[in-house]
Amino acid sequence: TNSDEIYFLSFAPKNTTKMSYAASIGKELSDSEKPFFYMKLKEFDFISVREESAKNKFHEIGIECIQNIDPVYLLNKNELEKMSIEIPEEQQPFVLVYLLQKSEKFMKKALDYSKTENKRLIVITAIEFKKFSNVTYIDKCGPREFIRYFIKADIIFTNSFHGISLSIILNKTFFFEYLAVKFKTNSRLHDIITFFNLEILDSDRYDAIPKVISIDFNEVNNKIKKEQDRSIKYLKEAFEHRSISK
């Protein structure tokens, strides 16, 4: 956002309690940007960032903050299911692909897997690339339908942080691919994957996607619950401080 001050709540009146929750830088901080970030963030009363890497960067420039998990993790599987609405494609088993960046190699692995398993392939993306036959492409859907595709998918292929996150929350087997080097958001993908010890789901590890892969979702769910508790505690303390200040 080219250091747009709006994202630092520059519009807020003086003496307002300022806080962030799971904010993401989404890029590397250059040396020239560090003084600007320091000046703007020292005005905040509570700072929470999404990535451990962002927390470390801010500590280096003298800004105290904590790391909290992305807000999507504050909703559990049951809550997501209640929010979703039925989609026409859910009557038969399908493999779901959700792409933020074009990847023919990743797409081919998903296509090969769906053929091997004799399941339909549904692709959610706004990216223009080679269209394959016998594939359903979804370029428009609302959030309730979007969630439903993840709920009903048998297996998921994604290079999106939130595609990964929804798969994790819903306890779905998925495979991911890191974005190309020119994209600067791989740190958030790497952080969430390593946090849940899911490196085994990196599609680059496999020439052909394995039929069965074991994931300890009990361990995953315990970690989510722990992070939810930490996050709610942070938010309560921040809002209680605001009430006292007023």
Rank of each mutant, 00 (worst) to 15 (best):
I147A: 05
F174T: 02
I168A: 05
S167I: 10
I168Y: 08
N171A: 15
G163H: 00
R148M: 13
R148N: 15
L166Q: 08
I169L: 11
I168N: 06
G163K: 01
S160F: 03
I151V: 10
Y149K: 08
F174N: 08
I164S: 03
K152I: 14
H162D: 05
I164P: 00
A153Y: 09
N171Q: 15
T173C: 14
F150L: 12
F150A: 08
I147F: 06
K172A: 09
S165T: 12
S165M: 05
F174P: 05
F174E: 08
I151S: 06
K172F: 10
A153R: 10
T158G: 05
F157H: 08
I168W: 09
N159V: 01
K172I: 08
I164E: 01
S167W: 04
F176C: 07
N159Q: 12
I169Y: 05
K172R: 13
A153W: 07
S167H: 08
H162A: 06
L170W: 06
I147M: 11
I147Y: 06
K152P: 12
S165R: 03
L170V: 10
I151N: 03
S165H: 11
H162I: 11
F157M: 12
L166T: 05
I164V: 13
R148W: 09
F176P: 03
F157T: 05
T173S: 14
S165Q: 04
N159T: 06
K152F: 14
S167F: 12
S167D: 08
D154A: 14
K152S: 14
S160G: 05
F161M: 02
N159W: 13
Y149E: 07
R148Y: 11
F176W: 09
N171K: 15
F176T: 00
L166R: 01
N171L: 13
F150C: 09
S160L: 01
S160N: 03
S160I: 00
I147D: 04
G163S: 04
A153L: 11
L166I: 13
